[in-house]
Amino acid sequence: MRPDADSAAHQRFVAAARAYWRGPLFRELYREAQAAPDTAATLTTHRYFAWLERHLQRMKYSGPRGLSAIAQRQRDDLLAQVAGPLPPHLLALDASLAAPDYWTDHDIHQQPGGLRDELGAFVYREAVGGGVVGTRGLHERFAARVVRDRRVKRVLDLGCGFGRSTVAFAQAADQAHVDGIDLSESCVTLAAHESPEALRGRLAFRQADAAASGMPAGAYDLVTSTMLLHEMPESAVRALIAETARVLRPGGIVAHLDFLPPADPVLRLLFEGHARRNNEPFLLEHSRIDLAQAYADAGFARVDVVAFDEEDGALAQPPRAWRLPWHMIVAEKHA
């Protein structure tokens, strides 16, 4: 997107304020909270931390200089970017797809209209260009770790968004065909149109529900998702686990990159607060699932959960900045 000068300045202000919020203000809060972690929520610094988390996100997306308004002012130009012809295999939309209630009842991340709006993917892409979840190279780092030492020929990327994760897996597994699916028409459309020419023969994007994908049974060596599970209620996550077992071949792998609550009581307080402040109503639900039992019930041999450092030094203690508690959840289906 190309914002006007005033909107660009507004976004620059918000980005700088967010950097202050997750850096110096967080470090001061973390320091103060060590004296009494159980009452950290009542600290004045915590109240300002919480307010800024909530409202800097609002200022980023909403208002006349927010990302949604910027996108609306460029509506015709943006839609023209995804209006051209594509190779027939690259994009499949499903106008009859029934969007689940959990997806339509909330504007996740405080993005007005969420990813349901036809410009939603453009807004989301701009929003994650930098910031807490926009760590440069995160998708490539995850994909490289997952496919390392594994022969992967066919990959299914659940909740693929605008395709960053899908492309990362196609690059990491250089012989693999990668299918990306997402509920959002806007996302899969943008993903297909912006996919690298050199990879298009090995990519396909489809509008579909990860919990009932309609993809062929036993067809995939690897099923993956990035930042998907925490956006689904527990019932949908359980359905997704069963669907994953259905589409994987025997011995296949599922690898999710998502968030699980930190053990540190102060970081846990901030993570749980983040759920409400960032309009993530299901953030805590999948962490309540006994993943080992759920995957065993679905026919998986083992499940490993490990902390994921999205960049070098990210797991340092004490933490240098507020970050989301990334984890890799990897399970292997019985051969």
């Binding site: 300045a9 507004h10 620059r12 202000f13 304020a17 919480a50 909530r54 409202h55 200022m59 409400r276």
Partner: peptide, 30 residues
Amino acid sequence: EQTFFADPALDRLMGVTMALAAEVYVLRSR
């Protein structure tokens, strides 16, 4: 809207303050 201070008047006043700050920064950039 969610509130974070004991007195919600502070929440709203913070909103005004940050809106003004953003306006000042836009003007500064101009």
